[in-house]
Simulated assay, not measured.
Amino acid sequence: MADHTEQQGSSERNGPAVVDLKEYRESRDTAPVTFHRLELNQILRIYGRMVGDGEWKDYAIDFFRDKAVFSIYKRSGDAPLYQIEKMPKLAAKQGAFAIVNTQGRILKRGHELAQLLKFFDKVQKLRD
């Protein structure tokens, strides 16, 4: 028993334990992904136009560890008609932004939010 205690004491004197950086980063409580002010302004501009046309009635914003979601509703009690998602982990690959429909199908994905939101211009033209 005395030998075991001495060994522990000697290892502590040699320096701190090695910690895997990836495990450390994953264990930390990270801040959720959010929309920046300019991104939110772009989304709310489209939202306001569609509300004015009577197409949309409500919205919700959710922030998660890996993504931010702006959900758009036709009626308050329904499932979201569209969801605009921001997933920074996909920024280098497919694009950080996506528009998802009620069934969860990705309708459009891109690197720039302004280009992505042009999708709703086409939706508006189809309904006119």
Rank of each mutant, 00 (worst) to 15 (best):
A91V: 03
R45S: 14
V123N: 00
R49M: 07
L81G: 03
R65M: 00
Y73I: 14
I43M: 14
L116P: 07
I61D: 01
F64G: 02
N14S: 09
I99V: 14
E55K: 14
Q103K: 15
G77K: 14
R49K: 13
A92K: 12
T30A: 08
I84M: 07
A17W: 00
A98F: 10
V123L: 10
E112D: 12
E55V: 15
E112Q: 14
K67L: 12
D62M: 03
I84G: 03
E85N: 09
L116G: 05
A96V: 08
D29I: 11
N41H: 09
R37P: 00
A17P: 03
P16T: 10
M50F: 15
E12K: 03
K86T: 05
M87Q: 12
E23N: 06
I72R: 01
A17M: 02
P80K: 11
Q115K: 11
Y59C: 11
L126V: 02
V123K: 02
T102I: 09
L126F: 07
A60K: 15
F120S: 03
V69G: 02
R28W: 07
Q83L: 08
Y73R: 01
R49H: 13
E112P: 02
A114G: 06
L90V: 09
A2R: 01
I61N: 01
N14P: 00
D66A: 04
S71A: 13
L90Q: 15
V33N: 01
A60N: 13
A2K: 02
V19P: 00
E12C: 04
D66Q: 10
W56S: 06
D20Q: 06
F35C: 06
Q42P: 06
L113Y: 08
R105E: 11
A79S: 13
G77D: 14
Q83G: 05
K22S: 09
S76D: 07
K118G: 07
L117W: 03
S27C: 03
D20L: 03
E112F: 10
F64L: 12
T102E: 08
L44I: 06
K22C: 08
A2G: 00
S76L: 05
